[in-house]
Design a binder for these strands. Structure first.
Lengths: 237, 237
DNA sequence: CATGGACATCTGCCATAGCAGTTGGCAGCG
DNA sequence: CGCTGCCAACTGCTATGGCAGATGTCCATG
């Protein structure tokens, strides 16, 4: 990515951050501001004030607020105002369980129609995960983890699934931000789980991939403090 | 909220159809037009032409198209146009499986926090279902079925879940519209499944409620022709 | 002092106008 | 005949302005 080798690599593979629509940028920016705590729950949001603050018009802001409302991050009382939705610990747990189920079906669908190059890419990500686990490099592990799940979601080719899980993953970031210092050192367990998921995908076993993926998400939620004790463990399934 | 009968009827249970925002009305109208086949897949949609056709401005139409895009019903190429998304049989099957998983977690959540009056209401709906099954009244059964699932969704209190499942149920209507005359006469089976779900809810058994609900949705999708053969049956779980 | 009503001011909501890309077609050149 | 470049007509996108409804405040009234 250094500017030096821009001459060699003919293609610019990166997303053009600034060529997106204002509404899209406002949406992402507001989403990040909410999940990072900059906009605390209960905070009143005005279309006009936010528009002037962002230096844009009120329409893109309104569009972004609409999408956030459909994501459940804000609620708007007609003619009265828009406020950041309250997401308590209980609701965060619910959303986590929903995400576990959705990622489960994503794994099942991926097991049915994932292509060989994607499987190879998953193998490469697994290698990076192994190295990152041994080196205790949490940043690299987070990045690899992001790519891992995003690749599986894209492998399903289902837009609805991708959008829904994307919104839910934003909530996951929020939960992680609250219980900071969460991932202590059970990283090897996560690595083994990821390996098991890829193995199920290679076997083209939808049921196994779904079970393992769901269990993986649920366990990670438990270690992050989003979910309490193991709800129901050791059912062989 | 009418000032006259506000003294008599404390609660206004009906939705005020015409007091909704134009964007909301355009959204529902377009959604219905798509799932009923009036707007076939691949049909180009122009914000302006649609606005003039509906007699409103372009903004509410744009807002409705955005929400439909988030639902996956339309796709819009920036600066090029918006078209009704193609939903093939395979994708319809995927969405059905996603809905089965979501309704499963909805049942699990409902089993944990459903209130007594809602349980009683479910019992009443079951009675109506039994009568409708014996009378072969498919219209009444459809209405009761709608209330049944909507009540469970509302019992979870999770807005994200309600919105997501609502969008997916719209696709279900589309699938039913394609394979018309689908529900032949295995209505008693659906009745028994509904009864089993309510029994699990009464026992406050989340895992059982989830399994039964998911199986119920999957079977109904099979009888509607959305899903092919039984994917994986008789795993005791 | 308590109460009710008018007004300024907020909000979300909508209409109009115009911008910047994209596309299809048609004239003009090779 | 085939290709190239321009131009008109789209498209989605954004800015501006103004609408009705809801809220809070202040003054007049009991």
């Amino acid at each position: 990515m250094a500017p030096a080798d821009a001459a060699r690599t003919r293609l610019a593979p990166l997303v053009e951050e600034d060529s997106l629509s204002l509404g899209e940028r406002a949406y992402r920016r507001l989403r990040d501001s909410i999940v990072q705590g900059a906009l605390p729950p209960g905070r009143k949001i005005s279309e006009r004030s936010l528009a002037t603050a962002l230096g844009i018009s009120a329409q893109p802001v309104r569009e972004a607020l609409r999408r956030l409302e459909q994501d459940g991050m804000v609620v708007t009382l007609p003619r009265r105002g828009t406020v950041v939705a309250e997401v308590g610990a209980a609701q965060l747990a619910e959303l986590g369980r929903i995400r576990a189920a959705l990622e489960g079906v994503a794994a099942a669908l991926a097991a049915e129609r994932i292509a060989a190059p994607d499987l190879a890419a998953l193998g490469a990500i697994l290698a990076r995960m192994k190295a990152g686990t041994e080196a205790r490099d949490t940043d690299a592990l987070d990045a690899a983890n992001e790519e891992f799940h995003a690749l599986i979601h894209r492998a399903t080719g289902n837009q609805f699934l991708i959008r829904s899980v994307g919104s839910l993953r934003a909530y996951d970031h929020l939960g992680r931000h609250r219980a900071v210092g969460s991932t202590p050192r059970d990283l090897p367990k996560a690595l083994r789980e990821h390996q098991g998921i890829v193995a199920a995908l290679r076997r083209r076993d939808p049921a196994l991939a779904e079970a393992r993926m769901r269990q993986h998400i649920l366990r990670s939620l438990v270690t992050n403090g989003v979910l309490p004790a193991p709800p129901q463990m050791r059912n062989g399934r």
